[in-house]
């Protein structure tokens, strides 16, 4: 809500109460960092994903981003953005979107496109510039756009990287 300059402290208090009463979205986010290790998972798979504090070059890490709206109004156009960490490489097709729109950037967030449409320019020896479809290893950012997160709703998205 717009708050203009207030001269009267009593009025300010009144407005603050009114503001607190007004419905507002409040989105929180957390990251869970997992690593695939040998050893059966509870579901019987040969490997399991466990929380990771360290990793070796070549290890695949999964970042699970939990988001929830703890406010009392829907959050609109929630954009979850995550730069691929330095020292890691995005694993192809590992962006799990759970039904939300996922786009990628290969230029540090300047441009965004779905995986198949993301391109980059290559200067050929002759000087001509050619557009090519970006390979997932070149992604710099991943982004999910959730058009609406209702109050009390939550969800999660995830992606994987390989430690260089």
């Amino acid at each position: 809500m717009p708050v203009s300059i207030l001269l009267n402290s009593a009025l300010a208090a009144t407005l603050a109460i009114a503001g607190a009463a007004q419905a507002k979205p409040r989105v929180v986010v957390s990251i869970q960092q997992l690593k695939e290790v040998a050893g059966p998972s509870p579901s019987g798979k040969p490997t399991s994903w466990v929380p990771a504090a360290n990793a070796s070059p070549g290890d695949v890490l999964e970042y699970v981003l939990h988001y929830s709206n703890q406010g009392d109004e829907a959050a609109k156009n929630a954009v979850i953005e995550d730069p691929i960490p330095k020292g890691t490489t995005f694993v192809a097709a590992s962006g799990a979107d759970a039904g939300v729109e996922i786009t990628f950037s290969n230029d540090n967030g300047k441009t965004w496109a779905p995986a198949v449409k993301l391109t980059y320019e290559v200067k050929l020896p002759g000087g001509a510039v050619e557009r090519r479809v970006a390979t997932p290893s070149g992604y710099t950012h991943v982004r999910w756009t959730v058009s609406s997160v209702p109050a009390g709703a939550s969800g999660q998205v995830s992606f994987r990287v390989r430690v260089n």
């Binding site: 979205p25 986010v29 990251i31 869970q32 990793a55 970042y63 829907a74 959050a75 730069p83």
Partner: peptide, 29 residues
């Protein structure tokens, strides 16, 4: 290696809300 995710969102009226972030870090062995 630190991964930081940022969420930007609007309220129902379309007003941008303060972004929230979360980070996770691993140490390379």
């Amino acid at each position: 290696i630190t991964n930081t995710a940022t969420v930007n969102y609007n309220d129902a009226g379309g007003a941008a809300q303060a972004a929230v972030t979360a980070s996770a870090a691993v140490t390379v062995t």
